[in-house]
Design a protein around this nucleic acid. Structure first.
Lengths: 151, 151
DNA sequence: CTGACTGCAAAGAGTTTGCAACCTA
DNA sequence: TAGGTTGCAAACTCTTTGCAGTCAG
């Protein structure tokens, strides 16, 4: 954790921004909840125990900052709020999402498989791809079972 | 257009819902703006000329209804509002989106290429895929040019 | 000691909902 | 004529912003 905080401090200083206890606490929440898809409100709730003084506005502002630095990754599953995930490798995202229309559960699966396509896009559209989001919508194993039973 | 309206009426009646001039007008907007990604507000604006009496709440309610029937397709590009597109074939969507982080422009490109992956997902995760969304984020040709010039 | 950062509360967007009047089947 | 539908306004949810006080560098 210490190294991550030092990294953050350095990145902030490079941009004339400052390290604060609030920013450290918020980064910590994301690191401790790696692979989760947290909303601002959830981060705020998770902070209540140890840092009840941190306001929701600060959470929003910090999340935006961290996302701008590439430390967080923004996800939008279409449920009306933004979710964020810690981007451990600070590299591209090679996992995708299976979003269940029954229960809302989000599974991840690994794999890129899109490089060829990205090359094609660059060649044919002159579009420089810096990221991609691939989502599959459908019904997870649990919901499929339930749906079968209800027939 | 008439056939589409009759189809809609039939689908509505099957669900104990009614055809109304408002619903017809809203469907018409989507048909006339095929391949566009309209927000509720945009639909409302487009209706003003011919149907200034239709309220925004009705637009929202109708869009939700049409999306539930599979007549519209919901798109979410992460800009804080939902967009909808007329689903001409009422079948799966085999085009994807290139979203420019510079100017926000959204280009489409055709191609499925995901069938193999869908099979894999079903086999390995027991997840039944009914749709997918594939988006590439980056910089379009125009913005790339501009960014080069500003260097 | 400067100016970036914070918490709070208020304002803003987009969307949903309650309700009385209205209209379709 | 029964009950689904509408327009309006108010309510709601998520997010952003203004501001005075605070704190990091």
């Amino acid at each position: 954790m210490k190294k991550l905080l030092d990294d953050l401090r350095r990145q902030l200083n490079e941009r004339d921004c400052r390290m604060t206890p609030q920013r450290a606490a918020i980064l910590e929440v994301f690191v401790e909840n790696q692979f989760q898809h947290l909303t601002a409100e959830e981060v705020y709730q998770l902070l209540q125990a140890e840092h009840p003084e941190i306001g929701l506005a600060t959470v929003y502002r910090t999340i935006e900052l961290l996302a701008g630095l590439g430390i967080l990754y923004r996800l939008d599953f279409g449920d009306g709020r933004s979710r964020y995930e810690y981007n451990a490798g600070q590299q591209e995202h090679y996992h995708h999402h299976l979003i269940c229309r029954g229960c809302g559960k989000i599974e991840e699966f690994a794999g890129d498989l899109l490089e060829d396509l990205e090359e094609l896009i660059e060649r044919e559209h002159g579009f420089q791809v810096i990221d991609h989001a691939l989502r599959f919508y459908g019904y997870c194993a649990d919901c499929r079972r339930e749906r079968k039973e209800n027939q």
